[in-house]
């Protein structure tokens, strides 16, 4: 799965500009699915037919990533930018970002800003793409860029930009690869625009009208120095979501994941996340309501350029997803 993950995390795909990552994922799933389509907002839907009597199940992972968007280019060719999703200035100064045309920019900070001991605001940052004037600047207002970071692997830890949520995409693709038979009509949905408001998931689920929906996304951790107390650690198994700041997981969906993990001897953790939410929040309120849950990959440094997950959690997430899909829901 490592090469799949490498390909997914290193591909460009900020919210709203998911064409490249969609093409990469499409190439991976095309031969595995019975039907494939792109819905009106751009989410990729790969359908796998099941037997009779199963449920219509959506599995969703978002393929967009956080990034920045150029909002202004000054006469010397420096660009100002705004955030796409949860990008924070603390994590960006000195970073490199890349545009879809390959242009690389360095995030600089105004030297004479008001209070140099404070974390700068986004307004005090700029992007240096090596231009000398507005005219020769290779990027324009409205262009989007993402962090530049290759995948690094140390022991069982995987470190890259955009683990959120390409690692979820990897879990879905690997699940589809290994899936032998299922009673369910499965829709593997690679959603767009999660980071700016869960938009792709809501509209895709409306189109599919599922009986059950499960998102696969990253969650936080409580196992780093002076972290908030959170009973989730890297390497102790995928986390079955109980609650986050946007939703309360449907009890039956949560329970089935826990039970199948227990039955199959797959390690798992239970997740109560104080800040953040996932596509499952949007899917649960579609139409008359969809019982929804989330299988999470514990991740450190979420929304920084170096998001870290544990390979064993990813593997166990695939195993658990296969267990969930194998039998009646």
């Amino acid at each position: 799965m490592r090469e799949l993950i490498r390909e997914l995390v290193e591909t460009y795909g900020p919210s709203g500009v998911e064409d490249e990552i969609r093409a990469v994922i499409r190439a991976e799933v095309e031969d595995l699915a019975d039907e494939i389509r792109v819905d009106p907002l751009g989410s990729l839907v790969a359908r796998k037919h099941g037997g009779d009597g199963g449920k219509r199940v959506v599995l969703a992972a978002h393929m967009d990533e956080i990034g920045i968007m150029v909002s202004y280019v000054d006469e010397k060719g420096f660009a100002r930018f705004t955030r796409i999703g949860g990008v924070y200035s603390l994590n960006t100064v000195g970073d490199r970002v890349a545009f879809s045309n390959g242009t690389v920019g360095v995030v600089g900070v105004e030297q004479k800003r008001a209070n140099a001991t404070k974390i700068p605001t986004l307004d005090e940052l700029y992007l240096d793409v090596g231009a000398t004037s507005r005219e020769d600047c290779p990027v324009a207002v409205g262009d989007s860029a993402v962090f530049v970071r290759p995948l690094d692997i140390q022991g069982t830890r995987l470190i890259a930009k955009a683990m959120d949520d390409r690692i979820g995409c990897a879990v879905l693709i690997e699940t589809l690869r290994r899936l032998e038979s299922t009673p369910h009509d499965l829709y593997f949905v690679f959603t767009v625009q999660e980071e700016v408001g869960l938009f792709g998931a809501g509209t895709s689920a409306y189109g599919i009208d599922p009986d059950v929906a499960i998102a696969v996304d990253v969650t936080g951790n409580g196992d780093t120095p002076e972290s908030y107390p959170m009973a989730v650690a890297l390497g102790k198994g995928p986390a079955v979501k109980v609650m986050d700041s946007g939703m309360i997981a449907h009890r039956a969906v949560k329970d089935v994941m826990v039970q199948r993990a227990k039955d199959a001897g797959i390690p798992y953790q239970l997740e109560v996340l104080a800040r953040g939410t996932t596509d499952a929040m949007a899917m649960q309120v579609v139409r008359s309501g969809v019982p929804s849950g989330c299988l999470s990959i514990p991740c450190r440094y979420v929304h920084t350029p170096s998001e870290m997950v544990d390979e064993r959690d990813v593997e166990n997430a695939v195993c658990l997803m296969l267990e969930v899909l194998r039998a009646d829901l």
Partner: peptide, 16 residues
């Protein structure tokens, strides 16, 4: 249900 977490039961009931 779930009014306190974002008006969810009302959203889906009204749809239904």
């Amino acid at each position: 249900t779930q009014e306190e977490t974002g008006l969810k039961g009302a959203t889906t009931s009204a749809y239904g």
